[in-house]
């Protein structure tokens, strides 16, 4: 109980720190949101009026407390460029990014996991060497370059997947939530699920490949260390095959040390959605973040950054909880 309270408290401190830093940084950065809003030839009075309207004429400290006070009451301010409630905008876009990130994580796990197991089973052979080379290649290319490669091959050369947007525009969408993928699934509209997945597949794959390589490498290493332990040898002696031994005895204990690192890498993946969503014109929060920066939309940038920070903190919490769940020693404590 105490551990959970401490945990929550550190989470809040982290979020507050992020709020302060982002607030200051975007105000130091060059560019004036008001100048970008007004048509050329606007008078100085127009500028001043708008400044006052968005509270930008006050001192930095005052601005911060106005903004922060609002957040505590659930008011994240109003977007300057879109002239809408920031919270509403962000919540509207967040599900698309969550679905993309989780789908990417799923792809990364389902590529990296089996490769790690295969490599551990074939340790010391040329198969393992091949897996190492593939991992190295996947890692040395960043996600947005994978995105470009995928667009060129499967979007342009052999167009099998959608490369733009979240869903085909011709379809009439029955959705009430923004979690299109989940909703299409529960509504049994598998035609829509298929369309959504076909649009998500390439951006998700681009995000997933570097993470898949990391998972495959770390988990394989960790498995190989576990494979020589006495209880694994004992399982072999009992007559279990190498694959059974890995799945039954080694995997869970080998996954524990990799889990934390995968959690950190997953937050990097979420960060990667900003560029990938732009590249694939995917209507998520990352894509909106780039527009917000271009327009110097301070309230919106702040809101988005806070949401990303919250996601990172939650991912770490989830990792911790899984860790405790998988480890009987911690669970009983």
């Amino acid at each position: 109980m105490q551990r959970i309270l401490i945990r929550l408290f550190t989470m809040l401190i982290t979020l507050f720190g992020v709020a302060v830093v982002v607030f200051i940084v975007i105000r130091i950065a060059p560019g004036d949101p008001i100048a970008m809003m007004l048509p050329p030839g606007a008078t100085d009075e127009d500028v001043a009026r708008l400044r006052a309207l968005y509270g930008l004429d006050k001192s930095l400290l005052e601005q911060f407390f106005v903004w922060f006070g609002g957040i505590i009451q659930g008011d994240f301010g109003t977007s300057i460029s879109l002239r809408q409630d920031v919270l509403g905008l962000v919540l509207n876009r967040l599900p698309a990014t969550l679905e993309l990130s989780l789908f990417a994580l799923l792809i990364a796990l389902s590529i990296g996991g089996p490769l790690a197991i295969w490599g551990a089973r074939e340790r010391g052979t040329s198969i393992e060497a091949g897996i190492d080379i593939a991992n190295g290649a996947a890692l040395s290319i960043p996600d947005f370059l994978w995105g470009l490669v995928l667009i060129l091959t499967f979007g342009v050369l052999i167009p099998v997947f959608g490369i733009s947007g979240r869903v085909s525009p011709r379809l009439d969408l029955p959705f009430v939530s923004q979690f299109y993928l989940f909703e299409s699934f529960f509504r049994l509209r598998f035609d829509l699920t298929k369309d959504l997945l076909s649009h998500m597949f390439m951006p998700a794959l681009a995000l997933a490949l570097p993470l898949a390589a990391i998972i495959s490498q770390l988990l394989k290493q960790s498995l190989k260390e576990v494979m020589d332990l006495d209880y694994v040898v004992l399982a072999r002696v009992k007559g279990f095959s190498e694959t059974q031994v890995i799945l039954r005895e080694a995997l869970k204990n080998a996954a524990l040390p990799t889990l934390t690192l995968i959690g950190v890498q997953f937050t990097f993946l979420i960060g990667g959605t900003v560029i990938i969503e732009r590249l694939f014109s995917y209507e998520g929060i990352g894509n909106m973040a780039i527009d917000a920066v271009i327009n110097r939309d301070l309230p919106l940038i702040q809101g988005i950054v806070l949401v990303f920070a919250l996601l990172f903190v939650l991912v770490n919490l989830a990792v911790d909880m899984t860790y405790t769940l998988l480890n009987p020693r911690l669970r009983n404590a």
Binding site: L229, D230, Y231, V233, L234, G239, N253, P328
Partner: peptide
Amino acid sequence: VGANVALIPQDPLTALNPSR
């Protein structure tokens, strides 16, 4: 071999899987 030969290992601390 699994069905006919068993092993009593040296170190009981490491010969059991900690998570099962």
